[in-house]
């Protein structure tokens, strides 16, 4: 299983509804793929058997011409019969219910067109697969503020490390966005962006610094720049701004 799929399904734990619908879709796709594969193999075998029978009939006919004329029908029948048995066995082995979930037919997500949703109003909670070439990350998770901890736990458990925490001030929508960038450094490539939105009037998100100690400084920085309060943070004092700073320069309505 590819890391992207693995991570996606791990993250879908957070969104049971999406998991259910995606699971159904996946199952249907798998069924369809299996049926297609079976039909294809059947057709192939049939064609092969027919070709074989034909070739045999031809050669026999030739032999018959050389020697005494003989009835070709019984051999032909047996050939067709054996081919049919062969086919049945093959189809059976193909169609036999596999206990483990089979390899995914193809990754339908990989050719998903890049969609820009960030600025087009609310987006439902869930996991989206993004085009890496266009975006630079693979999975885009949008979750409720209190789910960021669970997301961090899941990703940390899967061996991801936190690259950065940052905020975006969507002043027109009266909202603030907090983005967590994760990546994996152990051999495989998968970048995950976890984002959440909070009201601009009361920007509060739970801290993840107890899970990723690296988040400690990043959260302090985001608090400096946006005034986002990371509840439960052990030491939420200015890190880059002066120690007595009471302003948040990256707010869009900040005037020095």
């Amino acid at each position: 299983m590819s890391i992207l799929r693995e991570t996606k399904w791990a993250l879908l734990e957070l969104f049971p509804e999406q998991k259910a619908t995606e699971g159904e879709a996946e199952k249907a796709a798998r069924e369809k793929h299996r049926a297609d594969a079976r039909a294809k193999i059947e057709a192939e075998i049939k064609a092969k058997a027919e070709a074989e029978a034909k070739a045999k009939a031809k050669s026999e006919a030739k032999e018959g011409e050389a020697a005494a004329p003989k009835k070709p029908s019984p051999t032909e029948e047996t050939a067709a019969e054996s081919a049919a048995i062969d086919l049945a066995a093959k189809v059976k082995s193909q169609a036999a219910p596999q206990p483990a979930p089979p390899e995914e037919p193809e990754e339908p997500e990989s050719d998903e067109p890049p969609v820009s949703l960030e600025h087009e109003g609310p987006r439902p909670f869930g996991v989206m697969v993004r085009s890496y070439a266009a975006r630079g990350y693979h999975l885009d998770v949008f979750c409720a503020p209190d789910q960021v901890v669970a997301a961090a736990e899941l990703l940390d458990g899967a061996g991801f490390s936190l690259e950065a925490v940052t905020g975006v001030d969507w002043i027109k929508e009266e909202q603030m966005e907090v983005v967590y960038d994760y990546t994996i450094t152990a051999g495989r490539l998968c970048r995950v962006a976890v984002r959440t939105r909070i009201p601009r009037s009361a920007p509060e998100v739970p801290t993840i610094s107890h899970i990723c100690p690296g988040a400690n400084w990043h959260e302090r920085e985001t608090h400096d720049f946006f005034g986002i309060k990371f509840t439960g943070h052990p030491y939420l004092v200015p890190i880059l701004l002066p120690e007595d700073a009471d302003f948040h320069p990256l707010l869009k309505d900040f005037t020095p």
């Binding site: 960030e118 975006r135 630079g136 990350y137 690259e163 960038d181 990546t183 962006a193």
Partner: peptide
């Protein structure tokens, strides 16, 4: 550029 958000490393 269109309204997107991208990451590059």
């Amino acid at each position: 550029p269109p309204a997107v958000d991208v990451y590059s490393a």
